[in-house]
Amino acid sequence: MSKLGCRCGHVITDQTDSLPYKASLLRDEVDNEFWDEVHRELKPLVESAESGDKAAIADALGQFSPSLSAADKLQDRISSLYIQRMSTAYECQNCRRLWVQKQNSEKFVSYVPEEGTYGAILAAASGESENLD
């Protein structure tokens, strides 16, 4: 997605990395499944590395192009597992509406906060202490 029109009229843009109003959402229902698959991907590689068997390491990673290192190949595999299960969330910087991507869909559902000012709730460091009552 590169742009999402909010109901307030603001256009939420997603055309770069490290956006403070964007987050990836890994639903609790698929969290264990994701980590189990990561473990299945890593286990043969770790066992091969512990044994020092370079041929087994190559088998664990499969064939890869000369331009991709083993680390790049592993990162691609884990990223692919994550992308299959994650959804995206955006916070409108104008009205604070939270937009959450529906699972396995390109559609978004919006949620309106109780407070009326932008809270940067998806930012890594919002600068505000959270009070959960």
Results as ranks from 00 to 15, higher is better:
Trp99Gly: 00
Leu61Val: 05
Cys92His: 02
Ala55Val: 14
Cys95Ile: 06
Ser79Pro: 02
Met86Pro: 03
Asn104His: 15
Ser129Glu: 13
Gln101Lys: 06
Glu115Ala: 05
Pro113Val: 05
Ser105Thr: 04
Asn104Pro: 01
Tyr82Lys: 11
Cys92Lys: 01
Ala60Glu: 01
Leu122Met: 11
Glu115Asn: 08
Lys73Gly: 05
Glu91Arg: 09
Pro66Ser: 10
Ala120Met: 05
Ser126Cys: 08
Asn94Tyr: 06
Tyr111Val: 01
Lys107Thr: 11
Asp76Thr: 13
Lys107Phe: 04
Tyr90Phe: 15
Ala55His: 04
Leu68Arg: 12
Glu115Lys: 06
Ala56Ser: 07
Ala120Phe: 07
Ala56Phe: 03
Glu91Gly: 04
Ala55Tyr: 01
Tyr111Pro: 00
Cys92Ala: 09
Pro66Ala: 04
Pro113Leu: 08
Ser129Thr: 10
Asp59Met: 08
Glu115Tyr: 03
Thr117Arg: 13
Ser80Leu: 13
Tyr118Arg: 05
Ala60Asn: 10
Tyr90Met: 06
Ala70Gln: 14
Lys107Cys: 02
Leu68Asp: 15
Ala124Ile: 07
Ala71Cys: 10
Gln103Pro: 12
Ala60Ser: 12
Ser79Thr: 11
Gln103Thr: 08
Gln93Arg: 14
Leu61Asn: 04
Tyr111Cys: 01
Glu91Val: 00
Leu122Phe: 11
Ser79Leu: 05
Ile83Phe: 11
Gln103Ser: 10
Lys54His: 05
Ala123Val: 01
Ala120Arg: 11
Ala70Phe: 13
Tyr82Leu: 14
Ser79Ala: 15
Ile57Phe: 07
Ala70His: 09
Leu122Lys: 10
Ile121Ser: 05
Phe108Asp: 00
Ser67Asp: 15
Ser129Pro: 07
Leu122Gly: 04
Ala124Leu: 08
Gln63Ser: 12
Ala125Tyr: 13
Phe108Ser: 00
Glu115Cys: 05
Phe64Asn: 07
Lys54Ala: 06
Ala58Tyr: 00
Gly62Trp: 00
Ser80Phe: 08
Glu115Pro: 01
Gly116Tyr: 04
Leu81Thr: 00
Gly127Gln: 07
Gln75Arg: 15
Leu81Trp: 06
Tyr118Phe: 09
Ala125Lys: 14
Thr117Lys: 15
Ala123Thr: 03
Leu68Cys: 13
Arg85Gly: 01
Ser65Ile: 02
Ser65Ala: 13
Lys102Cys: 00
Cys95Asp: 08
Ala125Cys: 11
Leu122Gln: 04
Tyr82Asn: 03
Glu91Asp: 06
Ser126Leu: 02
Asn94Ile: 00
Gln75Phe: 09
Asn94Lys: 12
Ser69Arg: 09
Glu130Leu: 14
Glu128Tyr: 03
Phe108Cys: 02
Ala55Cys: 06
Val109Pro: 00
Ala60Ile: 06
Met86Ala: 14
Gln75Ala: 12
Tyr90Gln: 01
Ala125Pro: 03
